[in-house]
């Protein structure tokens, strides 16, 4: 199978506090997944699950403690801040933070073209920028000479996507791209990802906590919890028929915009987050309604259940 990006056994350990305290938090723990060409892959979970750290490592903004990342057959070079060049681009969560508020937005477009030597003349640069802006429903005239504060959040996010497209990347890493965009405008961003996939063959790594948009736009999804991928498969299987108890809880906690599906029953919340990171066995064992003795002592294996990868004893051999 063709793999555009492959992440293998990725681990990131943060040391907290002073050198002496030795409190170490494994933000990403032995995570493996791959992204196919022209695919929207979601990495979903709550804050602190390690999804953004994974994205930052893929983008080269953070160094992995262990593990490898392969992009189109090329391995990540060690200690090189930006190991990819044009192949992977990113858009960020806060549309108002993506661009320097003191600089006109168009500068980023011209700089990208200049730095990657993608245009030989100013006229060609403008033509190219205009083309990419058209792909997101804007034009160069909308942008010329304007500062970030003159746009709405939704517009800025589309501008951000257009900038990412300038280098014709194969993969766009989108870290919570719609969480700060108004609900009424979200679909315009999310639909763009579909369009990029279908028309340009661009893959998207969609980092999100919003499972409803993930369901709408993504092909496959990995659910992360406290550094682990607990469940991975197609969105249909994972979100419509969740197997891992954590996915089930997450899915049931989503406030659905539908008065016929109101929340039923009560839920239990974790007292503190640190306990869960430091847990020996399955990190969800403290809140899991099905927790067994073994869950508390040994991390569960990853098993395949009907094409879905689940990390839970409920589905491993002796119990299933």
């Amino acid at each position: 199978m063709d793999k555009l990006l492959e992440v293998e056994n990725l681990t990131k350990v943060f040391a907290l506090g002073s050198v002496l305290s030795k409190l170490r938090i494994t933000a990403v723990d032995n995570v493996s997944f791959f992204i196919k060409p022209a695919e929207i892959f979601a990495l979903a979970g709550e804050s602190g699950c390690g999804k953004s750290t994974t994205a930052r490592i893929i983008l080269g903004f953070e160094h992995a403690t262990a593990g490898t990342i392969t992009h189109s057959g090329k391995k990540e070079a060690k200690n090189e801040r930006v190991w990819f060049t044009e192949g992977i681009q990113a858009i960020f969560q806060d549309p108002f933070g993506t661009f320097n508020p003191l600089r006109p937005v168009e500068r980023y477009f011209f700089e990208t073209l200049r730095n990657y030597k993608l245009a030989s003349s100013p006229a060609e640069a403008v033509r190219r920028i205009d083309a990419k802006l058209h792909a997101v429903g804007l034009s160069y005239e909308d942008l010329a000479g304007k500062y970030p504060s003159e746009f709405s959040g939704g517009q800025l996010q589309r501008i951000s996507i257009a900038r990412a497209l300038l280098t014709d990347p194969q993969l766009i890493v989108a870290d919570e791209p719609v969480s700060m965009v108004d609900a009424s405008l979200r679909m315009s961003i999310v639909n763009l990802f579909k369009k990029l996939r279908d028309e340009l063959g661009v893959s998207v790594l969609y980092i999100t906590h919003d499972l409803a948009t993930a369901y709408y736009v993504c092909d496959r999804i990995a659910i992360m919890f406290r550094g682990d991928i607990v469940e991975m498969g197609t969105v249909e299987e994972v979100l419509m028929n969740p197997r891992h108890p954590y996915t089930q809880l997450l899915r049931a906690s989503i406030p659905e915009a539908d008065t016929t599906h109101r929340w039923q029953g009560e839920i239990r919340l974790a007292d503190t987050e640190q306990d869960e990171y430091l847990r020996q066995g399955c990190r969800f064992a403290g809140r899991c309604p099905h927790a067994m003795e073994i869950c508390r002592s040994t991390p569960p294996p990853t098993v395949q259940v009907e094409g879905v990868q689940v990390r839970c004893y409920l589905y491993s051999e002796p119990f299933s």
Partner: peptide, 10 residues
Amino acid sequence: DVVVQRGVVQ
């Protein structure tokens, strides 16, 4: 987070 949000709404 959504799970916590549910707890707070509850």
